[in-house]
């Protein structure tokens, strides 16, 4: 009796010993920042003026934020951006993915080429496109005038800037959806398609009735990942408009950064970040639950 008991406790010690560096690192990297973020969010505090100290604000920061019309405008703008991006990316990505599932010559090359935008840093892509979208000498307006259309002030108005950013984000991330969609489509057994062919179903019927529903779990994951990523979009608007004109192209993330590092309202920025975190965690939880359900199957 004694022998195995002792063995087990040394085993447990060993496990703790091996895990502790990782756990400590995780605590330091994840738990500490989150806890201090929540802590700051309940205080009036500016990182620029540590001498003023920290005063308890309770829910004051949250109350201020949630009653401020400016922040709702940022949420609405972010929502529009997310909706545009995700809709365009999903539709285009599924379409491209469907084309890419067929085996043809040059497929591998095309695949790699399509991945390139995804490999750019978002800020780099942002500046690249800012030049292309320049109203006076940008290549986009050059092409537009070439086919007889008027020049568009892409980056100095809110709505065109929103569309431009959504298109650029779509340009960057459609390949990602396409990649996942192709993998999902290719995972459907050939006999299912053959059965459908024998059953006399048209390609469109097969696509909407069989291919798409069968790939839905994977496409859903792609959708959630894109939702999360688009929701925290910041870089593109920094590069394109700097949030302007006024604050009309500021996303929620943008507002967090500006509040924290331009105005140095650390407490208020923390509160906003906590709200953002909750939304993203909610989305992530759907994703994780979905993934574990897929694992069980």
């Amino acid at each position: 009796m004694e022998q195995p008991l002792q063995k087990r406790s040394t085993g447990r010690l060993m496990i703790i010993g091996f895990l502790s560096p990782t756990i400590l690192l995780l605590l330091f990297m994840v738990a500490y920042p989150i806890i201090s973020l929540v802590y700051y969010s309940f205080h009036n505090f500016s990182a620029m003026r540590p001498a003023d100290g920290m005063t308890w604000a309770g829910l004051g920061n949250y109350e201020y934020l949630l009653t401020d019309r400016g922040i709702w405008q940022r949420f609405v703008f972010t929502g529009k951006f997310v909706f545009l991006c995700v809709t365009m990316q999903m539709i285009l990505g599924i379409f491209v993915g469907y084309q890419l599932q067929k085996t043809f010559k040059g497929r591998d090359f095309l695949f790699t080429a399509l991945m390139l935008p995804m490999m750019l840093s978002p800020v780099v892509a942002g500046f690249l496109w800012r030049y292309m979208l320049n109203a006076e000498w940008g290549v986009v307006n050059y092409l537009l005038t070439g086919i007889g259309l008027p020049k568009v002030e892409w980056l100095s108005q809110a709505t065109p800037a929103l569309w431009a950013a959504a298109v650029v984000d779509t340009w960057m991330w459609t390949p990602f959806i396409a990649l996942l969609a192709t993998a999902a489509f290719r995972g459907i057994p050939e006999t299912i398609y053959e059965a459908a062919e024998v059953d006399g179903a048209s390609p469109a019927y097969v696509f909407f009735r069989v291919t798409l529903p069968m790939s839905a779990p994977v496409l859903f994951i792609a959708l959630i990942l894109r939702l999360i990523d688009c929701f925290k979009q910041y870089d593109l608007f920094v590069a394109f408009t700097g949030g302007g004109p006024g604050s009309s192209t500021e996303t929620v993330s943008f507002a967090v950064a500006k509040t924290a590092f331009s105005y140095f309202y650390t407490g208020e920025a923390s509160a906003l970040a906590v709200i953002l975190l909750c939304i993203i965690m909610g989305l992530a939880m759907i994703l994780v639950r979905h993934l574990s359900k897929m694992g069980e199957r």
Partner: peptide, 29 residues
């Protein structure tokens, strides 16, 4: 094409549409 030959086929490995119910599978054609 297979669909124009008025044939029906049962495959060695399961070729039912997993996302559809049994009834929907049967009436698919």
């Amino acid at each position: 094409k297979p669909s124009e030959r008025n044939i029906a086929m049962v495959f060695q490995f399961v070729s039912l549409y997993p996302n559809l119910s049994i009834a929907e599978n049967i009436i698919f054609p």
